[in-house]
Simulated scan of single mutants.
Amino acid sequence: MEEHKLFDAEYKFISLVWEHEPLNSTELSKLCLQELGWKKSTTYNMIRKLVERGLLQNEQATVTSLVKREQIQKYESEALLEKAFDNSLPTFIAAFLKDKKLSKAEAEEIKKMIEGAIK
């Protein structure tokens, strides 16, 4: 699962791909210049790097993702839970909700998720 670990710049880049795919690598380069301030060479290096890791596909200069945003979010949240909260979901939730208030709708949505996850 380590192959799903993304650094901040990689996540910003692949987010652009998710939002606009499929897209031509030249268009992606222009988008990265506009959104991230990257030179063409930086964009092409990032494409190559993420293709090598199996996260993107670049065929005939058309870039598409091979992983969904949800897969990356799942990996990142599991890694955070393990690293910072000793794999304790209640500890994470307590820390996350400290000094925050949920709307009734948010609380209801979370309640439904919890009920759906009960074995």
Rank of each mutant, 00 (worst) to 15 (best):
K5Y: 13
A94D: 07
R48H: 12
M46F: 08
K101G: 14
S25P: 01
L97E: 03
E109R: 12
E78H: 09
V51Y: 05
E76R: 03
E2W: 01
D86T: 10
L28I: 00
Q57W: 07
A117P: 07
S25W: 04
L23Q: 10
T26I: 06
M1I: 14
T43Q: 12
G37K: 08
K30E: 05
A9Y: 07
H4T: 10
K98H: 14
S29E: 12
E27D: 02
K5M: 14
T42K: 04
G37S: 14
E115R: 06
L23G: 08
N87I: 02
F96L: 13
S41R: 14
E59A: 06
E52V: 14
L80R: 13
T64G: 07
L97Y: 05
A9K: 01
Y75R: 10
K5C: 10
K112E: 03
A79L: 06
M1D: 15
E82H: 11
L66Y: 07
M46L: 13
N58T: 05
F92V: 08
L56S: 04
S15W: 09
M113F: 14
E27P: 00
I110Q: 10
E19F: 03
Q60R: 15
F7E: 07
L55C: 01
V63M: 05
A107G: 12
T64E: 08
L81W: 05
L89Q: 07
K98T: 11
E19V: 01
T42F: 02
I72G: 03
E106I: 08
T26S: 06
L33T: 11
A94W: 04
Y75K: 09
I93A: 13
A61C: 09
N58V: 02
E108Y: 05
P90I: 09
H20L: 09
I72W: 00
D99Q: 08
S103C: 08
A79M: 05
C32Q: 12
E35R: 00
E70F: 00
S41K: 15
S15Q: 12
E21W: 01
L16R: 02
I47W: 09
W38C: 07
F96R: 14
L28W: 00
L6S: 04
A107E: 14
A105C: 06
A95W: 07
E115F: 05
P22L: 04
N87T: 04
Q71P: 03
S77Q: 10
L23T: 05
E2G: 07
L102M: 13
A107H: 11
E109N: 13
Y44N: 04
L81E: 11
F85G: 14
L80D: 15
E108V: 05
F96G: 09
K98Q: 15
A95G: 03
K98W: 11
N87C: 02
Q57V: 09
W18L: 01
R69G: 09
F96E: 12
E27A: 01
L6M: 07
Y44T: 00
T26Y: 05
K74S: 06
L102N: 11
K30I: 02
E19M: 01
A95P: 00
F85L: 13
S25R: 10
K39F: 10
A79K: 09
E82Y: 08
E21I: 07
K111H: 15
S77G: 07
L31F: 01
F7M: 05
N58M: 03
S103W: 13
K39G: 10
T91N: 08
E82A: 13
T43F: 11
